[in-house]
């Protein structure tokens, strides 16, 4: 618990996490407002469309926040001071992953429910709301996805150590690579089914059915297993990062 408190003090005593959190919320809720305003009056505002800002762009900013939480420590050498205080290293790094994940979870929930609330307020007659289990998954699911993304970003930050490198990798991968993989002839589509962000999208969007908004995932997993798979990928990455950090000279 000490180490969680340590990471809490670290995270909230600098400015960039606050900015990242605000930007995430602004993107998620702002996009909801834009889409709600832009949807023609005769076609209803859908849930995936309302949450698009959070699922597509909010995730990216959350990962920047999480990666920075590690890479600034390497940048300013506070990671050395941390390892000096916690010579076994892994407990400190796990505490960081957990704390950042918790923060991402909270931001994700505020972003999702904020976006939904604003959508309902702007389009009261579109039947938007938490009517089905799928509605709940769509909205409340954003927090866990944010949390797992944060763990992935922390792991990558530990491995790469440079802010610019880690952020570039995360953003390029998240925004482009998974889509481009589909272009590989024959096997591309099969690989794409198992790529982590695509699978995470399966958890969020559920089985196909939505007309508007982002295309739903082609992952064969059920939403529950999709979340477990995504979490598993993040944990494997984190374990690799811990192993590397423990052996590496600080």
């Amino acid at each position: 618990m000490n180490l969680l408190a340590v990471e809490r003090i670290k995270l909230f005593s600098t400015r960039s996490p606050w900015w990242c959190a605000l930007i995430t919320l602004a993107l998620a809720i702002g996009f909801a407002a834009i889409i709600a305003g832009a949807t023609p009056a005769d076609s209803p505002l859908t849930m995936p469309a309302t949450l698009y800002g959070g699922t597509k762009f909010g995730v990216a900013v959350i990962m920047v926040l999480a990666a920075l939480a590690v890479t600034t420590e390497y940048r300013f050498n506070t990671i050395r001071t941390t390892f000096q205080a916690v010579p076994h290293r892994s407990p400190a790094l796990i505490a960081k992953a957990v704390l950042v994940a918790l923060v991402a979870l909270v931001i994700g929930e505020i972003a999702a429910f904020g976006a939904l609330g604003l959508g309902m307020l702007m389009r009261p007659n579109d039947g938007l709301g938490l009517h089905t289990t799928q509605d709940w998954l769509n909205v409340a699911g954003l927090g866990p996805v944010f949390a797992i993304c944060a763990v992935l970003a922390v792991a990558l930050g530990i491995l790469v150590r440079h802010s610019a490198g880690a952020i570039a990798l995360l953003l390029i991968y998240n925004l482009a690579v998974e889509d481009l993989v589909q272009l590989i002839p024959k096997i591309g589509a099969h690989i794409h089914q198992w790529l982590p962000f695509n699978v995470a999208n399966k958890f969020l969007s559920g089985s196909p059915g939505a007309v508007d908004g982002p295309p739903s995932s082609d992952s064969p997993l059920s939403p529950g297993w999709a979340l477990a798979y995504f979490a598993g990928v993040a944990i494997v990455f984190l374990l690799v990062a811990l192993g590397v950090a423990k052996k590496r000279d600080a």
Binding site: N2, L3, V6, I9, S13, F76, T81, T82
Partner: peptide, 23 residues
């Protein structure tokens, strides 16, 4: 080991607080 091993955007007291909390 090096007086510059700290986050420049953090207050001096907060720097010591997190370090103290580790132990």
């Amino acid at each position: 080991l090096d007086a510059t091993w700290r986050h420049p955007g953090r207050g001096g007291r907060d720097h010591l607080r997190w370090l103290a909390a580790t132990n």
